[in-house]
């Protein structure tokens, strides 16, 4: 079990130089084990800096990150050990593949953990299973398609069996089919292991449909933190920050402008459809939607 607690986190890039820039400031939150969290924010909002603090890739300029009550930046050992607990998949992770075979590449992380050969083998096969690349283990990563490479790279992190899995734009640049596969893989990992999952994404529809909690970053601060129904009940606030809203929300906003009454927050396709069908039934009964 891993509970992550972030206290007053601040990060400054290139301190004491003309290029000094505060990327995040005063970020505090608790991530209990097992949540599915979506992280939103436009480019430069600080969300990428934030996630790199969760496994001590970056050192805080102020504040602390705790895992089960222990400061993850306590010393060199704790900074290394947190990498096994919090797995981080970067954007375009396929660019990190380097081994001759898919098998060896997935084994890189577990190998660094100092596990036995049998244990590594078990983890590689398990991770490959999660993302559906068992049949490719002996192939060279260079021979694979873009979507396959992406899944192999994700398996390389999953193989460390992280209790917290963080993914930065895992579906960027993939076609709808590829996106769907990756999201299914992530869901399967979470369902089987009970891990906490954080997904940074520009894809509002996926975030809205998958996450039970959303974090919205803007100008280096955590400005919204709550369940999707709460976040998407204020769509204008999101568009004001230059963010998209889920497409069902956009349609609902347009319908409301047309004078239609729809219940509370609408952010998934199913909600919108249900709301409209209810409105249709009401219209049939002669109540009239307007």
């Amino acid at each position: 079990m891993a509970e992550i607690k972030v206290e007053q986190l601040r990060h400054v890039y290139s301190p004491q130089t003309p290029f000094e820039r505060t990327a995040i400031e005063a970020v505090s939150l608790i991530l209990p084990q097992g949540q599915f969290v979506g992280v939103l924010g436009h480019t430069g909002s600080g969300k990428s800096t934030f996630i790199q603090h969760l496994n001590a890739l970056l050192l805080p300029s102020g504040g602390r990150v705790l895992c089960d009550g222990e400061d993850i930046n306590r010393d060199k050992v704790s900074r290394r050990d947190i990498k096994w607990k919090v797995g981080l998949v970067f954007q375009y992770p396929e660019y990190q593949l380097f081994e001759e075979t898919v098998y060896k590449d997935i084994a890189f992380g577990p190998g660094n953990m100092g596990l036995s050969k049998e244990e590594i083998d078990e983890r590689v096969r398990e991770a490959a299973g999660f993302v559906g690349v068992e049949a490719l283990l002996d192939r060279s990563p260079l021979e694979l398609s873009g979507g396959q490479k992406r899944r192999v790279a994700i398996a390389g992190v999953i193989a460390m069996r992280p209790e917290v899995l963080v993914l930065d734009e895992p579906t960027a640049g993939l076609d709808p089919e590829g996106c769907g596969q990756i999201l299914d893989n992530i869901r399967a990992y979470k369902a089987r292991t009970g891990a906490t999952v954080l997904v940074v994404s520009h894809d509002m529809d996926a975030s809205a449909a998958l996450a039970e909690r959303l974090l919205v970053f803007n100008e280096g601060r955590l400005v919204m933190d709550g369940p999707p129904e709460e976040i998407f009940s204020q769509p204008e606030r999101l568009t004001g920050m230059g963010l998209d809203v889920p497409r069902p929300t956009a349609i609902a906003m347009a319908l409301r402008r047309q004078g239609l009454r729809l219940p509370g927050a609408v952010y998934t396709h199913a909600q919108l459809k249900a709301g409209l069908l209810a409105a249709a039934r009401e219209a049939e009964r002669g109540a009239g939607p307007c």
Binding site: A250, A254, Q258, A280, A283, G288
Partner: peptide, 14 residues
Amino acid sequence: DVDSCAGAIAAALK
């Protein structure tokens, strides 16, 4: 597009 879709639905409901 979003607006004409909303318009079509509103029209059908009315």
